[in-house]
Computed example of a mutant assay.
Amino acid sequence: MQNIIVAGGAGYIGSHMVKMLSSAGFNPVTVDNLSTGHRDSVLYGDFEECDIADSVRMGRIFEEYNPAAVIHFAAFSLVGESVSKPDKYYRNNVSGTLSLLDTMRRHACDRFIFSSTAAVFGNPEYLPIDELHPKTPVNPYGRTKLMTEQALGDYAEAYGLRYVIFRYFNAAGHDESGDLKERHSPETHLLPLVVQAAKGERSHIALYGDDYDTPDGTCVRDYIHVNDLCAAHLAGIKYLENGGEPADFNLGNGNGFSVKEIIDKVRLVSGTDFEVKTEGRRAGDPASLVADSSKARHVLGWQPEYTDIEDIIKTVWKTV
């Protein structure tokens, strides 16, 4: 049984990845400093509480488990916080990742799956967004991810690193078993916030702008189920095992859903109503972000299972 290190495996996407790896016959080894993750979300494999920048402790972990690959989710990802605390984001997202890559080099581990983001593209010049779209991030979070992507290319050329980059659009949903859930604190993602309002845990939902150039005036986003994301990562591991060259892929379901559509669908699924307050636009919110994931489908044979937003919402509603 191959060991796979999952950096950030105690987080939302990471914990789902750990479960999928275990089901696929791997032994996931979660490495997490628990700054935002939850120890009780790690239900499979082994767990090591450690920061990826702790090269001494990470070296011992690599010696013990001799991993076949590393999947890296251990990044800070709040756009607003990245603006007010850029030092935190550059230190962890860039410096921490470089430390992890250097630990891999010292222990002859050359397979790396990197969790990137649609934020590297900035404001879209065309839709849907493919891998060739210009990368002009507009916030420190996006810049730290793009900087790391560029470092991976340099490490591949100099040291033979083999990697896959996955750029997420909007991760959503829960594992249908109910064992794993989205547990951010504070919560910033739209779908769980709307579900909280439907459950009466939130007084209202704020709608930031209703005058965008979209069919109903609200922002349009591409929502991809968390298990579909994890399935792509599993395909990425197999791709590298089979000798695949370094590659980057955008991951979305290819369909855009507006904020109003999300609100209406949650009302439908939950059978409840709740207050929505329209407020001003937030700075830096593009009108539409939709992924072109055809490259992942073609190269990896990946196919998202959840393409209907109502089905994604149901996985949240029935497990909260």
Results as ranks from 00 to 15, higher is better:
residue 59 G to V: 00
residue 86 P to I: 05
residue 78 L to S: 13
residue 144 T to I: 04
residue 59 G to L: 00
residue 121 F to H: 15
residue 153 G to L: 03
residue 77 S to M: 11
residue 61 I to M: 03
residue 73 F to K: 01
residue 62 F to A: 08
residue 120 V to T: 00
residue 39 R to T: 05
residue 108 A to M: 10
residue 38 H to V: 02
residue 32 D to L: 07
residue 112 F to Q: 02
residue 29 V to K: 09
residue 108 A to T: 05
residue 130 D to H: 11
residue 127 L to P: 01
residue 128 P to E: 12
residue 54 D to V: 03
residue 76 F to C: 00
residue 66 N to H: 15
residue 29 V to S: 04
residue 82 S to R: 06
residue 118 A to Y: 05
residue 120 V to K: 07
residue 124 P to C: 09
residue 86 P to Q: 09
residue 68 A to M: 02
residue 98 L to P: 03
residue 44 Y to K: 04
residue 37 G to N: 08
residue 145 K to F: 08
residue 67 P to E: 02
residue 68 A to V: 07
residue 99 S to Q: 13
residue 68 A to E: 11
residue 94 V to A: 12
residue 104 M to W: 07
residue 43 L to W: 08
residue 33 N to Q: 12
residue 141 Y to E: 01
residue 62 F to K: 01
residue 102 D to A: 08
residue 40 D to A: 03
residue 60 R to A: 13
residue 107 H to K: 05
residue 127 L to T: 02
residue 126 Y to N: 14
residue 137 P to S: 09
residue 81 E to N: 13
residue 105 R to A: 10
residue 107 H to C: 08
residue 157 E to V: 11
residue 119 A to W: 07
residue 34 L to K: 02
residue 25 G to P: 06
residue 51 D to R: 05
residue 114 F to D: 06
residue 106 R to K: 15
residue 30 T to G: 10
residue 116 S to Q: 06
residue 64 E to S: 12
residue 63 E to D: 12
residue 114 F to L: 12
residue 147 M to Q: 12
residue 157 E to S: 13
residue 98 L to W: 04
residue 27 N to R: 15
residue 129 I to P: 01
residue 93 N to P: 03
residue 141 Y to V: 04
residue 98 L to A: 02
residue 102 D to E: 14
residue 79 V to L: 09
residue 72 H to C: 06
residue 148 T to H: 02
residue 38 H to W: 07
residue 44 Y to E: 10
residue 81 E to G: 09
residue 29 V to G: 07
residue 134 P to L: 11
residue 110 D to H: 14
residue 50 C to I: 05
residue 137 P to Y: 07
residue 147 M to F: 15
residue 46 D to I: 03
residue 104 M to C: 10
residue 131 E to I: 02
residue 87 D to E: 15
residue 125 E to N: 15
residue 41 S to M: 09
residue 70 V to Y: 01
residue 113 I to G: 05
residue 138 V to D: 15
residue 55 S to W: 11
residue 153 G to A: 11
residue 140 P to R: 08
residue 30 T to D: 11
residue 107 H to L: 08
residue 105 R to P: 02
residue 125 E to H: 11
residue 65 Y to C: 00
residue 96 G to P: 12
residue 143 R to M: 15
residue 145 K to P: 00
residue 69 A to V: 00
residue 146 L to T: 07
residue 67 P to H: 06
residue 88 K to N: 10
residue 50 C to Q: 04
residue 25 G to K: 03
residue 151 A to H: 14
residue 81 E to S: 07
residue 58 M to S: 00
residue 35 S to N: 13
residue 67 P to K: 07
residue 57 R to T: 05
residue 65 Y to M: 00
residue 54 D to L: 00
residue 119 A to E: 14
residue 61 I to Q: 06
residue 53 A to K: 11
residue 26 F to V: 09
residue 159 Y to F: 15
residue 75 A to N: 06
residue 30 T to K: 09
residue 92 N to V: 12
residue 101 L to R: 06
residue 120 V to N: 08
residue 120 V to Q: 08
residue 96 G to V: 06
residue 32 D to T: 03
residue 116 S to G: 01
residue 112 F to K: 04
residue 121 F to K: 05
